[in-house]
Amino acid sequence: MIEDFAYALADSRAQELAVYLLGNVPGLPPITQAVHILGIAAVTGSSIFLNLRILGIAVPSQNVSEMIQRLMPWTWWALLSNALTGSIFVIARPLRYYFNPVFAIKFSLLVPALVLAFVIHWLSRREPGYWEMSVGRRVALGAIALVSLVLWVGVVLAGRWIAYSEYLFYPE
């Protein structure tokens, strides 16, 4: 299904437009990538630092429940921005990304990271202070934070490797 979509995209007007824009708008590729990196920084400043706080590694004076409410919206907006800035490159070369295993790795780390971030935010919104109500919840949150942290770091590292693995894996 995703394969059909990738092939359909490769034949689309959207693909032609993305290639045209990236090739003809002066500075568009580096500017778009820089905005993508700034999005990564915003996710780091919100979700990664929240995970570090939960694990007792950073910003000890800040309150966990308060941090969730204050910082998670930054994560969602930054991820939306990164989806947009990332899309133009994928639309321009859908097959190159579809057949790149590192791109697949990045997304198989990103999806669970998104789910865990959503669970943290959603439960805390539904019931303020949710994660600090019992020992069991605290432990669960710690486990979620540890896994999330590893996932986010993996997403960033894998993201940078996509461009290098292309030379190795793309069949052309």
Binding site: L38, I40, G45, I48, L157
Partner: peptide, 8 residues
Amino acid sequence: VLAIGFVV
């Protein structure tokens, strides 16, 4: 890139 995420 990871370090830049932390700096910024």
